[in-house]
Design a protein around this nucleic acid. Structure first.
Length: 800
RNA sequence: GCGGGUAUGGCGGAAUUGGCAGACGCGCCGGAUUUAGGAUCCGGUUCCCCGUGAGUGCAGGUUCAAGUCCUGUUACCCGUACCA
């Protein structure tokens, strides 16, 4: 058969579409499979092959499930709100709506050309009113429950993009979008109280099947720690200074305290602080430092001692100095710490620099040289009889603090609340009205969606306010509660809002009454298998789990956890081994590959490149090998002849099928394809194939190279679509050989081979070795020390 | 610093979990066919001093047997960033 890929591919894509074979059924007797891939952000540059890899994994698994008789939901959509489109609108003057539509069209056509088995009737676009109506709905529910709130606080701010960013969006001190340095700024912003769900998000991980590194990253990001809050006294006042520590067992070793430069106690006590000018100078210096600079100066501790004010250690009444220093952050714990230089490296560095006492209270290290942070018995502590290990000491100390009323046990999380508003145009408007007499009033549900008004200028204001703030007709409104004059919130939601619940909408994309119908949700949820990038593990993945837990608490979804299983694909690097990027000019466009080699080759190559979860560089040459493979597959029908079945080949078919079957489940697509290549080589060596074998081959290759397989299926008289044909079953009996070739080692070196019946016993095996002239010669006349026979694996004879 | 991961031919990568290292593919070498080929087919291809040789980042160890387990060490990648 001639392999005219472009004719074959467009032919079958059209047929699939017309027959709607990839559309999921809302209700079905079949078992369901919900396979989800992270929907793309439709940027102006189009897709690159990395997108294709991200979808190819579940594409193969979903296609296999369909052939196995599942009702498969494999949807796609577009996460289209966000800064890149808005920035492009500013540059080109074209409205983001138009740009988005254009980009979605481009992405869709690229995806269709690859032949993905997406259900194109459920496509969602997060920027459509019918969609973001429900994003706003969920926001209002959060507002009602006190989970969406405004607060003035130090936030991450990108001076280049002129927006406030969440912690997740400013990892590494860089803006997630433009990579400029983030600055800290005090601002009145919207937050979602994700910290309220920190424990649930942590516990939920126990019941789901995520790759271990994915779980680990989330656990670290949530960052739960256990410890104690302790109230320290202040000299000559009733005020207390509350600290958080994970080492209450070192309380007797406290020799000073440190508070964050922004700590409110400074303002409160300013009359008592004798060196206020010096303190203020230090505070100013700190605000000038960017986050980046702060982290670069890790080694060098700075700080200023508060004169005229001392802390009082509640466990022994000792007066201790208080410092302000920027190594203590206002955003974690209470913004104040007890410093135990003997047992904390940072405190140790600080104490050394400022000449503060270092008192050892845990034995085990040498505090002359370094802080000892390990375990050990308590010493120098006027506490009961002291304990021998950390855990006991901590537990006893917490209990004692409680009894004395000076502190109590507590937990802290590294995760912070989610800074949720962006001062930009292209996002979901926050449906809140600010009324001078009623305060913040939600837009009534029946008025949703609160539409994004049409504008022609997308530049944010100089003061960093949203472009919406310039629209008087949008801003000025009546309070929904009292009817008086009021002003609308003009900020919009961040990029991550729409993607936090999109997988629910696929289940019921046209529902006007609810975000999705409960019966349908009960049938489809949870997502059986979710695949996406590692870069979303501490962003989208955690945000969407939070929203889903919240919706579960409201009774709007049937399960607490949205995703039963989560995997991640590795990057495709450029041919130069570097990360693909426009600026490096090493981006591979899937359209070019489809034109040159065909979609099936692209699909097979992407999965053949290597471990699905690992990064691998692109190689046009290697891809040519996949082309050769498919061309030879297309020639298989010419080998169909009558005659006897070659039992060895038949056995290879069943072995290969068994391997392909399990490799797909483990996402080991590269070895599945390699096995099929090996089988093909064997077929050509034998020179003939039966009709049944051909049918088997076509069906097992179909999830990988569906267009070619459909064409072959049709020409061999297969019924219906290959894509819906029954997944072939292997015969276990045929995968077991009657004989096995065993390596024979003498003193651990392979010296020969013997062929034995399966499961031959020790005597038979050794007899076969002795019967072999060459092997016998190596053993003959020597003292046999040991004979190891592992059935079907190896024979090793140790001689002297 | 902390957490996680990786290291195997010229290259991408395999190896049923302790049992024949290098599957499969690329590249390369040789041959066939072809007016020609960056097409196709066939054969070869870990290395070398070609042996009873060496060999999975490096140094040790356990074992009849180690890419796989243990101890130490180096390099690189990813995440995180003074988290008290």
């Amino acid at each position: 058969m001639k392999y005219d890929f472009s004719a074959i591919e467009s032919k079958w894509q059209k047929k699939w579409d017309e027959a709607r074979i990839f559309c999921a059924e809302d209700h079905s007797e079949k078992p369901k499979f919900y396979g989800l891939v992270e929907f793309p952000y439709p940027s102006g540059v189009g897709m690159h092959v990395g997108h294709i890899k991200a979808y190819s994994g579940l594409e193969v698994i979903g296609r296999k499930r369909r052939m196995q008789g599942y009702n498969v939901l494999f949807p796609i959509g577009f996460d289209a709100f966000g800064l890149p489109t808005e920035n492009s609108a500013i540059k080109t003057g074209i409205h983001p709506r138009q740009l988005t539509d254009r980009n979605i069209e481009k992405f869709s056509s690229q995806l269709r050309r690859v032949g993905f088995s997406f259900d194109w009737e459920r496509v969602i676009d997060t920027t459509e009113e019918d969609y973001y109506k429900w994003t706003q709905f969920i926001f209002l529910k959060m507002f009602e429950k006190g989970l969406a709130f405004r607060d003035t606080a130090m936030v991450n701010y990108c001076p280049h993009c002129k927006v406030v960013l969440s912690n997740e969006d400013s990892q590494g001190g860089k803006c997630d979008i433009c990579h400029s340095d983030i600055v800290q700024k005090s601002k009145d912003v919207w937050y979602l109280r994700i910290t309220e769900y920190a424990d649930k998000l942590l516990q939920g991980l126990e019941g789901v099947d995520y790759l271990p590194n994915i779980k680990m990253q989330q656990v670290n990001w949530i960052g739960k720690s256990r410890g104690a809050f302790v109230n320290f006294g202040l000299t000559d006042t009733d005020e207390t200074l509350r600290i958080y520590t994970t080492r209450p067992d070192t309380l007797f070793g406290v020799t000073f305290m440190v508070i964050a430069p922004e700590h409110p106690i400074i303002e409160k006590m300013k009359d008592r602080i004798e060196n206020m000018a010096e303190v203020e100078a230090y505070q100013t210096e700190c605000t000038k430092k960017t986050e980046f600079e702060r982290t670069q100066l890790v080694k060098d501790k700075t700080g200023v001692c508060l004169k005229g004010l001392c802390g009082i250690n509640p466990v022994n009444g000792k007066e201790i100095p208080i410092y302000i220093a920027d190594y203590v952050m206002m955003g974690y714990g209470t913004g104040a710490i007890m410093a135990v230089p003997a047992h904390d490296e940072r405190d140790y560095d600080f104490a050394k620099k400022f000449g503060i006492d270092i008192i050892e209270v845990i034995k085990g290290g040498n505090i002359e040289e370094a802080a000892y942070t390990g375990d050990g018995p308590m010493v120098n502590s006027d506490f009961l009889n002291a304990y021998d290990n950390k855990a006991d000491s901590i537990a006893a100390m917490i209990e004692w603090l409680g009894e004395k009323g000076i502190g109590e046990g507590g937990v802290q999380f590294k995760m912070k609340d989610w800074a949720f508003n962006r001062q930009r145009y292209w996002g979901e408007p926050i449906p809140i009205v600010h009324c001078p007499s009623c305060g913040m009033v939600p837009v009534p549900y029946e008025e949703l969606p609160l539409r994004l008004p049409p504008v022609t200028e997308f530049e944010p204001g100089q003061g960093g306010e949203s472009p919406l703030a310039k629209l008087d007709y949008f801003v000025n409104c009546k309070c929904p509660k009292c009817g008086g004059d009021a002003k609308r919130e003009t900020d919009t939601m961040p990029q991550w809002a729409g993607s936090s619940w999109y997988f629910l909408r696929y289940i019921d994309p046209k529902n006007g009454e609810a975000l999705a119908d409960m019966d349908k949700l009960r049938y489809w949820m949870p997502v059986d298998w979710y695949n996406g990038g590692m870069e979303h593990v501490t962003r989208h993945l955690i945000y969407s789990r939070f929203w889903h837990h919240f919706l579960y608490d409201l009774g709007l979804v049937p399960t607490a956890e949205p995703y039963a299983k989560r995997t991640a694909q590795g990057l495709i690097l450029g041919p130069d081994g570097e990360k693909m990027s426009k600026s490096r000019g090493n981006v591979v466009d899937p359209n070019d590959v489809v034109d040159d080699m065909g979609a099936d080759v692209l699909r097979v190559y992407i999965l053949f490149m290597g471990d699905y979860g690992a990064a691998a560089p692109w190689s046009d040459n290697s891809m040519r090998g996949c082309k050769r493979f498919l061309e030879r597959v297309a020639d298989l029908p010419s080998l169909v002849k009558g005659g006897e079945v070659n039992t060895k080949l038949e056995s290879s078919f069943h072995k290969t099928l068994k391997k392909v079957n399990s490799d797909i489940e483990e996402m080991k697509f590269n070895t599945a394809i390699a096995a099929m290549m090996g089988l093909l080589n064997e077929v050509f060596e034998v020179g003939s194939i039966t009709k049944d074998q051909l049918s088997m081959f076509v069906r097992m290759l179909c999830p990988f190279a569906p267009h070619l397989c459909e064409e072959m299926w049709e020409s061999m008289g297969g019924k219906g679509f290959a894509s819906l044909a029954q997944w072939p079953e292997y015969d276990e009996a045929k995968t077991i050989d009657s004989t096995v070739e065993l390596a024979v080692q003498i003193n651990g070196k392979v010296r020969g081979k013997v062929t034995l019946p399966m499961n031959a016993d020790k005597d038979t095996s050794l007899a076969a070795v002795h019967a072999d002239e060459k092997l016998f010669a190596l053993v003959d006349g020597k003292t046999v020390i040991k004979e190891i026979v592992v059935p079907n694996k190896i024979i090793n004879i140790v001689v002297k």
